[in-house]
Every structure is written in C-alpha cells, then in structure tokens.
C-alpha cells in the first residue's frame, strides 16, 4: 500500500494565497492540493478549512462528491479504465476482470506493493478506439484481456528491473 506520510502543508501555501479570498474556489483549491500530494490528506483538508474559513463538513462534502478527488494515496501507476458506452459495448468488462485477475485489485483499490491502482472512470472520449485505458496519462487502445495483461506485465517488469 502506498504510504501516507506527514504532509508538508507549506506546499499548498501559494495555492491558498492565490484563492483564499476568491469565492467559489474550493474545487480549484482541492484540485491543486491533489496535484501536489497525489490525494487529499486529512491534514491538508483541515488546514484549508482553517485558512479559508470553510467548514470541514463543506470541504469533505465537495471532496467526496466529485469522482476526481481521492482521500487515500494511489499507487504509482494509476490505471484509469474507461467505462464509456462504446468501451462497454466492446468489452470493457472483460478488461476490468483481466486487471482484477492479474493484479488482484478491484475498482478503487491499490495493489499491496503500491505499484498499481485501478479506477473505473467516465468516458475518456476515445470511443472509436475502444476499449481503452489510460495509465499515468498514456492511452492504451483497442484492448483485449490478453493485450491488457501484457501491458501490465511490462510495467511491472520495468518496475522490478528498476528496483533490483
């Protein structure tokens, strides 16, 4: 599991400075906070509450409403598996099953070594190349379960090599 560490709240000071007096900026603040830490750490949320004078309930309300926000750290490789209609029609469910089988993780889970997380995401807009998944910004298209496994094994192999 990717570890939670104490977060350096100084990292989001510029963000808070920029937005703290602009009404309606909570989502932007949270997006930049997540971009900084990879997720929304509890300390950061209480810090934002204090600086912006927003109730923690409001911040958590927003953070848990939108699919983009995460309250837990994610794995090094975030597999975003498209759940669009075209992907569904072309077998996204089989791809999901293949990932689960290969890595032992379901939607929203992270592998124990912290290497992979899987998230089912809304349509990535590559419908004509379906089914697709995106790993750390790179899109893999016209997947088959087999092709998907190969991609994952390749990444794992590279990671293994880097560790050794």
């Amino acid at each position: 599991m990717a570890e939670k560490t104490t977060v350096d709240l100084g990292l989001i000071a510029p963000v808070l400075e920029e937005y703290k007096d602009t009404p309606g900026s909570l989502i932007a603040i949270l997006q930049k906070t997540q971009a900084t830490y990879g997720y929304l750490p509890e300390e950061a949320i209480y810090h934002i509450a204090e600086v912006t004078g927003t109730a923690p309930a409001t911040i958590y309300g927003v953070a848990t409403f939108y699919a983009q926000f995460r309250l837990e750290p994610v794995g090094k490789h975030l597999i975003m598996l498209c759940q669009g209609t075209a992907c569904h029609v072309n077998g996204a469910e089989l791809i999901s099953a293949a990932i689960t089988d290969e890595l032992g993780i379901d939607d929203g889970e992270t592998t124990e070594d912290g290497l992979f997380s899987m998230e089912h995401v809304a349509c990535l807009g590559c419908c004509s190349l379906s089914p697709v998944m995106m790993i750390n910004g790179k899109t893999y298209s016209t997947l088959t379960p087999d092709k998907c496994r190969k991609v994952l094994r390749e990444i794992a192999k590279e990671e293994g090599g880097a560790d050794a």
Binding site: P23, G24, S25, L26, Q31, G61, F65, A67
Partner: peptide, 26 residues
C-alpha cells in the same frame, strides 16, 4: 476556464452552476 472534477450531473445546468460556485454539484 473552470475545470470540473468528475460528476456527470454537473452537465445539468443548475448543478453546473453549483459546481462553478465551488459546491457539491447538486
């Protein structure tokens, strides 16, 4: 530009407005 944060319902205009205001998109 305001970037959404992943909620289909924000395509509904009043939810979109709530979201623009930094709230839950209800």
């Amino acid at each position: 530009i305001k970037a959404g944060a992943g909620a289909f319902v924000c395509g509904e205009e009043t939810a979109l407005i709530e979201s623009l205001e930094g709230k839950r998109g209800m």
